[in-house]
Lab assay of single mutants.
Amino acid sequence: MKGKVVSYLAAKKYGFIQGDDGESYFLHFSELLDKKDEGKLVKGSMVHFDPTPTPKGLAAKAISLPLE
């Protein structure tokens, strides 16, 4: 699924993505496929991810940034 980063707290390594389906997904650095892309996780960045339901809500897994 595609989505847009709505927040990312680099110090805490987490944030949120708004998916194309309108839902909010929890984003964690550990799910970023290329850790070098962390600096690109800023508000408004477009990402691809696997939407995954968890006991705490919806989460983004296997997060990647589109090729530039």
Results as ranks from 00 to 15, higher is better:
Thr52Arg: 10
Ser7Met: 15
Gly3His: 01
Ser30Lys: 11
His28Leu: 07
Tyr14Cys: 07
Lys35Cys: 08
Glu68Arg: 10
Glu23Arg: 15
Gly39Leu: 13
Lys2Met: 11
Leu58Phe: 09
Tyr8Cys: 04
Lys56Leu: 10
Ser24Trp: 14
Ala10Gly: 08
Ala60Lys: 01
Ser7Ile: 15
Met1Ala: 07
Val47Thr: 04
Ala59Lys: 14
Lys4Leu: 11
Lys2Val: 11
Leu65Asn: 03
Tyr8Asp: 00
Ala62Ser: 13
Pro55Val: 09
Gly44Glu: 04
His48Trp: 15
Leu9Asp: 15
Pro51Asn: 04
Ala10His: 11
Pro51Arg: 07
Lys4His: 13
Glu23Tyr: 14
Ala59Ile: 15
Ile63Ser: 00
Met1Lys: 06
Leu9Arg: 12
Phe29Ile: 10
Lys12Asn: 09
Lys13Ser: 05
Glu38Pro: 03
Met1Asp: 03
Glu23Val: 11
Ser64Val: 11
Val42Tyr: 11
Gly19Asp: 03
Leu65Gly: 04
Ala10Pro: 15
Leu33Lys: 11
Ala59Tyr: 12
Phe16Asn: 03
Leu33Arg: 10
Tyr8Met: 05
Phe49Val: 00
Leu9Ala: 11
Thr52Val: 14
Tyr8Arg: 01
Asp50Thr: 15
Asp34Gly: 04
Leu32Glu: 00
Lys35Asp: 06
Phe49Pro: 00
Leu27Gly: 01
Ser7Thr: 12
Ser45His: 10
Lys4Tyr: 14
Tyr25Thr: 00
Ala60Gln: 01
Glu68Val: 12
Met46Leu: 14
Lys4Gln: 10
Lys40Phe: 09
Asp21Pro: 00
Ile17Arg: 00
Leu27Ala: 05
Ala10Gln: 11
Leu33Gly: 04
Ser45Glu: 08
Met1Arg: 06
Leu9Pro: 02
Lys12Glu: 07
Lys56Cys: 12
Ser64Tyr: 14
Lys35Ile: 08
Lys13Thr: 03
Met46Ala: 11
Glu38Tyr: 05
Lys56Ser: 09
Thr54Ala: 07
Val47Ile: 07
Val42Ile: 12
Thr52Asp: 09
Asp21Phe: 03
Lys4Trp: 15
Glu68Ala: 12
Gly19Lys: 00
Gly19Phe: 02
Pro51Leu: 05
Glu38Ala: 10
Asp37Ile: 08
Lys12Val: 08
His28Phe: 07
Phe49Ile: 02
Gly57Leu: 03
Lys35Thr: 08
Asp21Asn: 08
Ser7Cys: 14
Val42Gly: 07
Ser45Phe: 08
Phe49His: 01
Lys56Pro: 03
Leu65Trp: 06
Met46Asp: 08
Ser30Val: 08
Phe49Glu: 01
Ser24Val: 15
Pro53Ala: 12
Lys12Arg: 12
Pro53Met: 15
His28Asn: 06
Thr54Tyr: 06
Ser30Phe: 09
Pro51Ser: 07
Lys4Arg: 14
Lys2Glu: 07
Ala62Asp: 08
Val6His: 07
Glu38Ser: 07
Ala59His: 10
Gly22Ile: 02
Pro51Thr: 06
Lys43Tyr: 13
Met46Ser: 11
Val5Gln: 00
Asp34Glu: 08
Pro66His: 15
Ser30Leu: 09
Ala10Glu: 09
Pro55Asp: 10
His48Asn: 11
Val6Met: 12
